[in-house]
Amino acid sequence: MSHHRPDTLAHAPLGRESAYPEHYDAGLLYPIERAANRAPLGIEEGALPFVGEDEWHAFELSWLNARGKPIVAVARFRLPADSPRLIESKSWKLYLNGFNQTRFASRDEVVAILERDLARAAGTAVSVELFGVDDEALAPRRLPGECLDDRDIAVDDYTPSAEHLGVGEEVVEETLYSHLLKSNCPVTGQPDWGSVLIRYKGPRLDRDGLLRYLIGYRQHQDFHEHCVEHIFMDLMARARPERLLVLARYVRRGGLDISPWRGTPGERPPLPLRLARQ
Rank of each mutant, 00 (worst) to 15 (best):
V187Y: 01
V172G: 15
Q219I: 00
H220L: 04
N184C: 07
L197D: 02
V172N: 13
L235S: 02
I198K: 00
D192M: 01
I198F: 01
K182D: 04
G209Q: 08
P191H: 05
L211D: 06
H230I: 00
E169Y: 10
L214C: 03
H224K: 10
Q219C: 09
V171W: 00
P186W: 06
D208M: 14
G209A: 10
L210W: 02
Y213P: 04
V196F: 13
Y177H: 15
F232Y: 15
D192F: 01
C227G: 00
Y217T: 03
E169I: 15
L210F: 05
V171Y: 08
R204P: 05
V171G: 13
V172Q: 11
Y200M: 04
D206A: 07
Q221P: 03
G194S: 09
L210M: 04
D222V: 10
D222K: 06
I198L: 03
H226D: 15
D222L: 14
L205A: 06
D206H: 03
E169K: 08
G209N: 07
Y213T: 04
P191Y: 05
C227H: 03
V171H: 13
E225S: 07
G189K: 00
H224F: 13
T188V: 07
E170Y: 11
L210H: 03
Y217V: 03
S183N: 10
M233C: 14
C227Q: 00
Y177C: 09
R204N: 10
S178F: 14
C185K: 08
Q190M: 04
Q190Y: 00
R218T: 06
Q221E: 13
I231E: 11
H224W: 10
L180I: 12
L214Y: 08
H220E: 04
D208P: 11
L180R: 15
H224V: 08
L211P: 04
V228W: 00
R218W: 01
V171T: 15
Y200T: 08
Y217P: 00
E225P: 12
S178L: 12
R204L: 13
I231W: 03
Y217L: 07
T188Q: 08
S195R: 05
F223S: 04
K201R: 15
C227S: 04
C185S: 07
Q219T: 13
R218I: 04
I198A: 02
H226E: 13
V196W: 11
V172E: 12
I198V: 04
G216H: 11
H220K: 02
D192Q: 01
E170M: 14
E225C: 07
Y217E: 02
I198W: 02
R212N: 06
I215W: 09
D206V: 07
L210S: 10
R207H: 12
G216R: 12
T188M: 08
E170N: 14
C185V: 08
G202Q: 10
H226R: 13
T188F: 01
M233G: 05
D222M: 12
T175N: 03
L181I: 08
S195N: 04
I215Q: 08
T188D: 04
K201H: 15
P191M: 05
P186N: 11
L211M: 02
E173K: 10
L214P: 03
E173A: 14
Q190W: 00
V196N: 09
Y213Q: 06
L214N: 05
L235C: 00
S195A: 15
P186I: 12
H220N: 12
P191E: 08
V187Q: 02
Q190K: 01
G189A: 02
L205K: 00
H230Y: 06
R218S: 03
